[in-house]
Design a protein around this nucleic acid. Structure first.
Lengths: 339, 339
DNA sequence: GATTTTACCGAAAACGTTTTCGATTTTGTA
DNA sequence: TACAAAATCGAAAACGTTTTCGGTAAAATC
């Protein structure tokens, strides 16, 4: 059976489509009696407005696009959850795409979302993204765009981030405060801003404490996997047996390293202290439990949507949008992997 | 600036909208010359069909809905990834909603997706879902519906599952084969089918091997968390010190239990052997590594979308849809938590 | 040169909604 | 009773696309 339309209701009540439409939307120029009649019939006929027609007429879909580098990832899936929870409250649906850390895919997906005419876009950049034309296109089209976590500083849009530099500084300072003299850093890929910032925070902490920065103590990895953590742990034992502290870019890698250190009889934190990043729940489960920086994924998702929502509303009212930078608080969670 | 429309192109070339539309879709009754002209201009004007108009006209949106109990979950996020990867290949977008294991929310979300007129729906049921009217509504509306993982046997639609019973049987049999004499089971909530099936597989394996089933050895939990695993581990040491094998419903809980056993100096697998379920990647990282059942999440997502896609195509051709049950293969991954 | 076939094009309707604006009726005021 | 004001309604256009169907011009056939 075909779904009920305004026309159906109109014919049943022998009034015009116009009046039905207005009655359902509580226009002031419809009498209470007809309003009641229309609403009742709409209910019994189970009327649902045809979203396609509404979209076409109003040029909005109450749908936003979300591009994320990787879905199977504790932090990102938390962000997704935060976004969806907020979006649902405001009556927005979320279309999720995964860029697989590929710039090319990211570009295509932005294009796809634009052609599908989503109302706005949330994005966390792929590691490889160094060119921002596709993002500026979105802005030029007047579509609200909010970036989170992995952002591009040069793009003029709202951003929800944590202060990676500060967090990394605090993490490193904690290692220094607990007596570490030679501190290594396992960092992520070269490009993404947060990987850079965490590195800079680490470096700054060393310098502020009069410790010399040694580039050979910085290990760079492209994939943030458990196995990379194991590998780097081995490597550091071989290449730098004097290292007594490590600040690791992300918990998963830190946990890989801990596992490998455990295998080799290295005592944590006595021989080597470790601080991770994310506060992934496994970091409290591993032995020894991992000292780490708490990175509020759910909260970040919430804030990102909230900001996008604000801009969506502003756009409706033809008000100008002024990009905002929202920095979320992080905290150091002290556990057993540091003294 | 307004986006380009067919009308714009038509006016530029001084031909009709009809011809432009047909040229772009390679209708045979348009000359090669005009086709070339239209296509070129479309490109330079960066023409993108207005999805809303197309949707309205064709009554399809190339968008499907996905309802999932929980996004922050390794297995489910893998499924999502599988679904999205396939959907993208076929030009479909995926709207994701999270039921939070709530039947009420699930009902509302089905309704929302229907009113948004998605082409089809993929769903993994909430634990609390015992009434299936909302699902049958979808089918009655003629919208393709495919259930995966957490299904309802009574609903007449396609389903993608694993043979939970068989997998549980194999897991339990493995414990028996490696010498366990008294085997406990940590199971999930009462309602969901897979929780039931895993329990039945466990029970059957015991009986087939002449071991008496003891209901007091079955621990039921509603939330599958790490902490529940720890708690049950404590409990079993207190209540049933003679237990020498445990089949756990899900890896996360098993890992919680292992952590607690480690703390208490219980030797795994010598004192107690453990088999989990899922093959979550942490199960190979924990010490001792966890023997478990490999549950192909990504594959399940892929198959679920593929089946939905088939039904979408069939519906377009007015062909009848005959529901299919697709059972995916699982395998026992032997690691160090069993002998 | 007349007729048929083929190639190419466009008018128009349709999808279901929203919104403007004018028309009609009812009510209130003098 | 006459007129103004308020209340109530509906016609019509618009959003941009797709598709049917008929029409004209060019090419092919006799």
């Amino acid at each position: 059976m075909k779904p009920t339309t305004l026309k159906d209701i109109a014919e049943h009540l022998d009034i015009s489509v116009t009046t039905v439409s207005k009655a359902l939307k509580d226009y002031p120029d419809v009498s209470k009696k007809t309003k009641a009649l229309v609403k009742e019939l709409a209910k019994t006929l189970n009327y649902k407005p045809n979203a396609f027609a509404v979209n076409l007429r109003t040029e909005t879909s109450n749908t936003i696009g979300l591009i994320i580098p990787e879905i199977v990832h504790h932090f990102f899936s938390s962000v997704i959850k935060g976004i969806i929870s907020q979006a649902e409250k405001k009556g927005y649906l979320v279309i999720i795409l995964q860029s697989n850390e590929s710039y090319e895919l990211e570009k295509k997906q932005i294009d796809l979302l634009l052609s599908k005419r989503v109302d706005g876009i949330l994005i966390s950049l792929a590691n490889g993204t160094a060119d921002f034309k596709h993002l500026n296109d979105v802005i030029e089209q007047g579509k609200p765009l909010v970036m989170f976590d992995k952002i591009a500083k040069l793009v003029n849009c709202s951003k929800v981030i944590i202060d990676d530099r500060k967090a990394a500084y605090i993490a490193t300072q904690h290692l220094i405060d607990t007596g570490c003299k030679r501190i290594a850093h396992f960092r992520g890929p070269l490009l993404p801003q947060n990987s850079i910032d965490r590195f800079l925070g680490y470096k700054k902490a060393l310098e502020d404490n009069g410790m010399t920065y040694d580039a050979s103590l910085v290990y760079i990895f492209d994939d943030m996997t458990f196995e990379v953590g194991e590998m780097f742990a081995k490597k550091i034992l071989r290449e730098h047996p004097d290292v007594d502290g490590i600040f690791v870019n992300t918990d998963l890698v830190a946990i890989g390293a801990i596992t490998e250190f455990n295998r080799n009889g290295v005592n944590i934190p006595e021989d080597i202290s470790i601080v991770g990043f994310s506060n992934w729940f496994m970091s409290s489960a591993i032995t020894p439990s991992l000292t780490t920086i708490d990175q509020p994924g759910f909260e970040m998702g919430k804030m990102a949507f909230k900001q996008l929502y604000k801009e969506l509303k502003a756009k409706k009212k033809k008000k100008p949008i002024s990009p905002k930078i929202i920095a979320l608080e992080t905290s150091l969670v002290k556990r057993d992997s540091t003294k």
